[in-house]
Design a protein around this nucleic acid. Structure first.
Length: 156
DNA sequence: GCCAACGTTGGC
DNA sequence: GCCAACGTTGGC
């Protein structure tokens, strides 16, 4: 098995959970993902120590604001079992959980936001297939190549 | 707040 | 298995 570190981008709405929130708590279970593709990336692709670009979405200046690391293997997202949770899924059971998450650990805040606008202006370096700048970009968790990771942070 | 894009649901 | 209706995401 390859031990090479993988890289990911994870979106969060700062009103709900920001990079400052992550800095404060240190480690956070990434609950509430209810998209199968995003779940699969967390459940099947992520390994402890992988690098994460932390992205603020649905905000005035969307963009990459920090880095984090994958801090656990995937395990069931508890909020799916909780009828009072906004993320409750009546079709999920403890025997057959539907939604998984990983713990995410704060690494650092960037000295400035690498804005989506700016990222778009580097489409030639990142490739048209880069999920952030592809049309109808809605996935909240997706893989980033080592080269893309390095390039994006070099913009800081 | 608008709305395009797109995933999910459920009737048939 | 099709597809219309509906809900959500997220940039603007």
């Amino acid at each position: 098995m390859s031990t090479r570190r993988r890289y990911w981008l994870m979106k969060s709405e700062p009103d709900a959970f920001s990079i400052d929130d992550l800095q404060r708590v240190g480690v956070e279970p990434w609950n509430g993902v209810r998209n199968y593709q995003a779940r699969n990336f967390m459940r099947d692709g992520m390994r402890v120590g992988d690098g994460i670009l932390f992205y603020h979405s649905n905000t005035k200046v969307p963009g990459i604001v920090g880095t984090a690391t994958v801090a656990s293997h995937a395990y069931p997202d508890d909020t799916q079992f909780d009828p009072r949770s906004h993320y409750h899924d009546p079709k999920a059971t403890r025997e057959e959980p539907r939604w998984f998450l990983v713990d995410v650990a704060f690494e650092r805040k960037l000295s400035r936001t690498i804005a989506l606008d700016e990222i778009k202006s580097h489409a030639d370096s990142l490739g048209d297939e880069f999920a952030l700048i592809r049309r109808g970009n809605r996935l909240s968790v997706f893989p980033v190549s080592a080269a893309q990771y390095k390039f994006l942070l070099s913009l800081e």
